[in-house]
Design a protein around this nucleic acid. Sequence first.
DNA 1: GAGTTCGGTGAACGTTTGTACACCGAAAGT
DNA 2: ACTTTCGGTGTACAAACGTTCACCGAACTC
Lengths: 204, 204
Amino acid sequence: MTRQEQKERTRQAILDAALALSGEHGFAQLSLRQVAREAGIVPTAFYRHFASMDDVGLALVEQSFQTLRRMIRDAQRDPDTFADIIDASAEILVRVVKQHKAHFGFVARERASGSDAVRAAIQRELELFISELSVVLARLPHLERWSAEDVKLAAGIFVRNMVYRAEQVVHTPDGRPDLEEDIKRKARREMRLIVLGFEKWVSD
Amino acid sequence: MTRQEQKERTRQAILDAALALSGEHGFAQLSLRQVAREAGIVPTAFYRHFASMDDVGLALVEQSFQTLRRMIRDAQRDPDTFADIIDASAEILVRVVKQHKAHFGFVARERASGSDAVRAAIQRELELFISELSVVLARLPHLERWSAEDVKLAAGIFVRNMVYRAEQVVHTPDGRPDLEEDIKRKARREMRLIVLGFEKWVSD
DNA sequence: GAGTTCGGTGAACGTTTGTACACCGAAAGT
DNA sequence: ACTTTCGGTGTACAAACGTTCACCGAACTC
């Protein structure tokens, strides 16, 4: 195994360990030694990869949002998405969040409580996500004539509501399809209610 | 000074210390010794008032939501509230959150990242708040015929959006009325957009 | 006024923490 | 084949942690 491969592997082990452990008691209270132990290395070896735990946090933000982006890309390829964009969104939301509970849980938790650097990084990524959704929304029937600001406002409401429902999915125990269906149903209805406002909004 | 008075005073000092310190690095990473130091007592004296830091967290949740409740009660007394309920809500939101940044910051942070007990307590209080808002919303022109579930759905969207704007206010530096105005404006427009959907919603 | 209650004290313990340092051995560079 | 690079190791130390215990003195009870 080349040195580069091995290094990347250990780096990922640290990230995996941090992500797994942060699910139990929050990222901020992880100790460097704890993470190193879980990653199978000695504490001092940690410094060969990250300068501090804060850097690990930033790397996890990046990794988590890569997951999110992949989800969006795949969703847009799926032909079902265009049949009913709301039904498809609710479906995808629950499925993907369930698949990546650790990443989404991390983002949900650290969005409000992480270090300044981590919080800022998450905030930036979410803004980016809102911008991307704005592009999609702008093509909807009633929104063609809206100002860019208004489209972003609507996208923001959408995204924040989805973040909330994603949090719920994260905290839903596995093997409870009834609870998942309930979340999907609520998410759908919420989106529908918001969309209804679109028709009557007078953009300035 | 009676013993009871003194005890209550120290207890409050612990809560104040924990609230103030948690503003910097999050409640979970506070140490008992740190809080005791800030409160002006010796670590062991802490145990005369709380069994653990977790209990302090629960007490802070209660105190924070008392603040919120007082805000709602006062708002409903204010005659301006009924002139335009949306304008008034945005105004009150920013004013009160600014006045109690520590409490609202605590709730925002711990809502997603606190211990299970603290998170559950906050979740319960927010649900309660949504129920109360539902009662108010149910009297609005278009919502009279809605099912209880639908009213709650709408109230949930409202509250979650306000929580987000409250988070923003918490992170807004003092003495920036321009930023505050911007938040108010966005909050107003978001509420208006959501309300527009009310007229067309068909409740089942 | 004697006796009890109880909030606060101070020393002490065993852990865990972050980080420094010198060192090793295999991969990479020559 | 040599030297260099570098990810990982083991020891070490001072600091902070939660919790225990015996103890003090002023506010309470009677």
